[in-house]
Computed example of a mutant assay.
Amino acid sequence: MNNEDMKSIFDQINNLKKPVTESKETNAAYEKDAFREVLNGISEEIQRVLDENDFTQEDLCRITNMSQSNISKIQNGKVVPRIETLQKIANATHTRLVISFESMEGED
């Protein structure tokens, strides 16, 4: 086997690795978008229950004994709330915390 053959084989091997890397990058981007969607959903749900109860952030702070800064960060998607925090908000707004997994089949 000459040098040209060896170079050809290594080129083929390197080309096989590229789609795997691109696939990992695509998956990472998808996961980041999906995570952002979850945080947005949490924010929307908190706002919905506040509106339904005619509560302000200040009211929620007083009832839950949480800081307004923390509640604001949750609503703005700046922090990931713990389940215990979400349960505390649910209790304060007379709602039930529900976490579910939905099928992604049929989505583009």
Rank of each mutant, 00 (worst) to 15 (best):
V38L: 15
S43R: 08
A34S: 13
M66N: 05
N40A: 12
R96T: 11
F101Q: 04
E25V: 10
I63D: 01
D54S: 04
L60R: 06
T21A: 08
K88Y: 09
V98R: 14
K73C: 09
K24R: 13
N70T: 14
Y30V: 10
N2I: 00
E25N: 15
E22M: 15
L97H: 08
R96Y: 13
E52L: 03
I42F: 05
A92G: 04
V20I: 11
K32A: 08
M104R: 15
K17F: 06
Q87T: 07
S8I: 02
I89M: 07
T56C: 01
F10L: 07
R62L: 05
D59I: 04
S43L: 03
S8G: 00
E84S: 15
V98I: 15
D54H: 01
V80L: 09
I99V: 07
S43E: 06
I9F: 01
G77C: 00
Q68I: 15
A34K: 14
S72I: 00
E84I: 12
I63E: 03
E58I: 06
E4R: 02
M1H: 05
K73I: 12
T85C: 15
I9S: 07
S43Y: 06
K24A: 13
N76W: 05
M66C: 11
K32G: 07
D5K: 09
I46Y: 05
N70A: 14
F10E: 10
N3S: 02
L60K: 01
K17G: 00
T64G: 00
F101P: 01
L39C: 06
S69A: 12
N2H: 07
N27Q: 13
T95R: 05
E107C: 12
I99P: 06
D33S: 14
R62N: 09
D59S: 07
N76R: 05
G106T: 10
T56P: 00
T64D: 02
P19I: 04
N70Q: 15
R48P: 06
S103N: 05
I71E: 04
V38H: 12
L16S: 06
T85W: 10
S43I: 06
T26I: 14
L60V: 00
V49S: 03
N14V: 07
R96A: 10
K88A: 13
I99A: 08
F35V: 01
I99T: 10
T93W: 01
D51K: 11
T93M: 01
K7R: 08
D54N: 05
R96L: 13
E4N: 11
V38Q: 13
L50W: 00
N15V: 08
N76V: 00
D51V: 00
I74G: 02
I83E: 12
Y30A: 15
M6C: 08
L97T: 08
N27H: 14
F35W: 09
G106I: 09
T21L: 02
N27F: 06
